[in-house]
């Protein structure tokens, strides 16, 4: 029996998918749900602009079928904050000018949000000297962990500064 529908939890709201099984999660969000904050940059998992969180984990929504996400909790940039009520990471991106054109920005922010959780969970990365140890959150660690998100405007160092600020304020809190 072919499966033709799915129910997704998108930013806390139940959304029915009932359509062409070819539709990616990205296109479902952008075209059907009008959640255009998630961007299409390459459609092949090569740029990170489409990054969303699924059950707390960051993924490329362009390389995932909507129909495969039955029961999953999807968090998009719209679920992180609003202009009237910015999340700390969004505020930090604004104040550090962690973008120019803004097109990769939602993906960077979703990615950074999940990345901070991965760090908190002690996940290693390709630059972790001894993978068995808990990694120290150096700038090099942050850069490696954010390397799945391209920024052609070249705001990279400002993005790292924004993430760093959020990490420090969370430590202080």
């Amino acid at each position: 029996m072919a499966t033709t529908s799915a129910t997704l939890d998108v930013n806390g709201e139940a959304r029915e998918f009932q359509g062409d099984p070819r539709q990616t999660l990205l296109d479902f969000l952008r075209l059907d749900l009008k959640l255009t904050g998630t961007k299409k940059g390459c459609d092949h998992g090569q740029c990170g602009a489409c990054t969303v969180m699924v059950n707390g984990r960051r993924i490329n929504s362009c390389l995932s079928l909507a129909i495969m996400h039955d029961g999953d909790q999807i968090t998009t940039i719209e679920g992180i904050g609003t202009p009237e009520n910015l999340a700390a990471i969004q505020r930090a991106f604004v104040s550090h000018d962690g973008f120019q054109c803004g097109y990769c920005t939602p993906g960077q922010i979703c990615s950074a949000t999940a990345m901070l959780k991965e760090l908190a969970d002690g996940w290693p990365s390709a630059v972790t000297e001894a993978v068995a140890d808990t990694p120290a959150p150096s700038d090099e660690e942050l850069r490696e962990r954010m390397s799945g998100n391209l920024c052609r405007c070249g705001a990279y160092s400002n993005i790292i500064a924004a993430i760093r600020e959020v990490m420090q304020s969370e430590e202080g809190a």
Binding site: L35, G37, I77, T82, L86, D97, F99, T105, P106, I109
Partner: peptide, 21 residues
Amino acid sequence: LDRPEGALKACGQATYAAEHD
């Protein structure tokens, strides 16, 4: 100064070409 459109961009609310409904 911060970009005046910065918050829109950081929230995915700035509308790019393909996104007009």
